[in-house]
């Protein structure tokens, strides 16, 4: 499959180079918000949405910055952009869907410091994706993040019922689980006919 094609970009961000398990982006919510499946799912929805908005705007901003030779401002503008799009999402949700806002409320500020969002913007810039490729990339990354965090939450819900030694509590076991998940995802390498 052509590595530039939209379907490959989506698959690559979703499975082959999964954002969380292969590129280590967005680990904080992955460890922090994966205790329950519902909240994990809501978190991934909110993240995907912010990713989509910020990646679309980042594309435009990058065009403007490049045309004025202001690349050194890229990082600062991206981070300001993400902070403001999180605010935007917060306001839109509050107005149109108070129920969803209550469900996501506490996670929204967290998203600002989620490196997966900035990662999407930076990677799409360094790989020189065009507009549609950027949008596809952000959706794939969001879906990949969602998949990883929901899988993790499912595993951790099961773990609550099992009898574990003391020392494996909290983060240590989560890391081990993530390692095994990550090994599993390595099996997707080569999907689509191109190596990562």
């Amino acid at each position: 499959m052509n590595p530039e094609s939209l379907s490959y970009i989506f698959l690559s961000a979703f499975l082959i180079n999964n954002f969380v398990l292969a590129m280590f982006l967005g680990l904080c919510p992955f460890v922090g918000v994966s205790a329950k499946r519902d909240t994990a799912f809501n978190m991934s929805l909110a993240t995907t949405f912010v990713m989509f908005v910020s990646s679309t705007c980042a594309y435009g901003i990058n065009q403007v910055l490049t045309s004025f030779d202001l690349e050194f401002l890229r990082l600062i503008s991206y981070i300001a952009l993400i902070a403001s799009s999180v605010q935007l999402v917060e306001m839109v949700l509050k107005k149109f869907s108070p129920a969803l806002f209550r469900a996501l409320g506490i996670f929204l500020p967290l998203i600002t410091t989620n490196c997966a969002i900035l990662g999407v913007a930076l990677f799409q810039t360094s790989r020189e994706y065009d507009f549609f490729q950027s949008v596809t990339f952000s959706l794939g990354a969001g879906a990949g993040f969602g998949l990883a965090i929901v899988l993790m939450a499912g595993l951790r819900e099961k773990l609550e019922l099992s009898n574990l030694p003391n020392i494996t509590q909290a983060a240590a076991l989560s890391m081990m689980l993530a390692g095994i998940l990550s090994l599993t995802f390595m099996g997707f390498a080569g999907l689509g006919g191109a190596t990562a």
Binding site: I167, A172, L173, M175, M176, A178
Partner: peptide
């Protein structure tokens, strides 16, 4: 080779945490 690939990162960090937890306990 797995140790320098992504899964190795998770597993090594997990192992350090286990060791530190054990010693602390």
């Amino acid at each position: 080779v797995v140790m320098i690939l992504p899964p190795g990162g998770f597993i090594v960090l997990g192992s350090w945490l286990l060791l530190i937890n054990y010693l602390e306990q």
